[in-house]
Design a protein around this nucleic acid. Structure first.
Lengths: 192, 192
DNA sequence: TGCGATCTAGTTACATTGCAACTAGTTTCT
DNA sequence: AGAAACTAGTTGCAATGTAACTAGATCGCA
């Protein structure tokens, strides 16, 4: 029985390496450590459901239930040896193997000829502006501090990566915008 | 009633701008025009299901059923005016608005400190090799021809984009590999 | 000429995810 | 005191992903 890999499952296993924790604690950690930037937690729904499935699969186990006066019982979950192992396997797979996850933007680009070149220019211009903001936000995060100490680089690699990719996208869009303006790149709109 | 946006739905609507077509024809077009590189069609299942839902939503309509001797009836689908409109709306949204789709790689990076730096270097080294291959493949596609004629640039934008992003990723990984080797970047493995 | 392999065209079933809404207690604001 | 907002968790359905199954057509080749 192989458990389907997902960023959420990875995050739960990864965070439990820190020590046992209850579901809400996991949720808070994800936010506090900014993992919500790279892991889709949207509704809490997915988190609770994933925890149940991970337990059924034996990758985590319910331990003692903490009893804080003013909260309902909180089941604390532990990472099992199998969980720890699977987590390493997933990490290796993810880090070594580029995988097409079909983002929207390239799909959109592949139908850009349906609109006239001028419209395409306007749309991509807007994207370019938003990208600029996004890049600024990410770069701010790179300089973030905890207790007056800068966050060590190894804890910011994912943000570095996102900056690198966003900057590349911005540059590419700039070149396309340029070629649209000069007319080097053009087409007559309509079906392919 | 708003129809949930997806690259598959976009592709179907986009391809039907060419003229009415039956489901299998759509599937073939997706492959022939390389849209399967940017649109997830995996099993045919999703395609057939999506066509049904698009019809229910009135974005496409079933027209005459073609009768070729040796094939079962084939219902031909047309784009409706609403379908055409929605397709433009989606295009505008997709092209203007960067959106986090939570790819695996950054999520993996954010837990890289669980493995020792040397292991991380090996894993990323493998990724780097595969990226090189992928970039070569994409660049080959950029030079592809149809009937001895080079494919016009506007039909290759999504591939150009993918190259730009892949190259940026490769460069970033190179810099990380360098810093791992020189020891500029390091950590002691284990929980955060 | 026949037989297995592969391609075409589609369906069925189940696991997983995404999204919205609902409960019910707690704190904060005014 | 009452409204608004936060905490912590549940329920339910729509959509997607993935695998497997059917059933006819065609191809390789012995």
């Amino acid at each position: 029985m192989t458990f389907r890999r997902s960023t959420l499952a990875l995050a739960i296993l990864g965070l439990l390496e820190n020590g046992p924790l209850h579901p809400y604690g996991i949720q808070r950690l994800i936010k506090q450590w900014g993992k919500d930037q790279v892991v889709n937690v949207g509704q809490r729904t997915s988190l609770y459901r994933m925890i149940v499935r991970l337990e059924e699969a034996g990758l985590i186990t319910a331990g003692a239930t903490e009893q804080d006066e003013r909260y309902p019982e909180r089941t604390v979950y532990h990472l099992t040896d199998e969980g720890r192992e699977i987590c390493r396997e997933w990490l290796a797979e993810i880090l070594t193997t580029p995988r097409n996850e079909f983002p929207e933007f390239p799909a959109g680009l592949s139908f850009v000829m349906l609109v006239p070149p001028e419209t395409a220019g306007e749309l991509l211009g807007q994207r370019r502006e938003r990208l600029t903001k996004r890049i600024a936000e990410l770069q701010l995060e790179l300089r973030s501090e905890v207790n007056g100490q800068p966050v060590p680089r190894f804890a910011l690699l994912e943000t570095e990566y996102q900056v690198a990719v966003a900057v590349a996208e911005a540059k590419w869009i700039d070149s396309v915008l340029h070629d649209l303006r000069t007319g080097t790149l053009t087409w007559t709109p309509g079906p392919v």
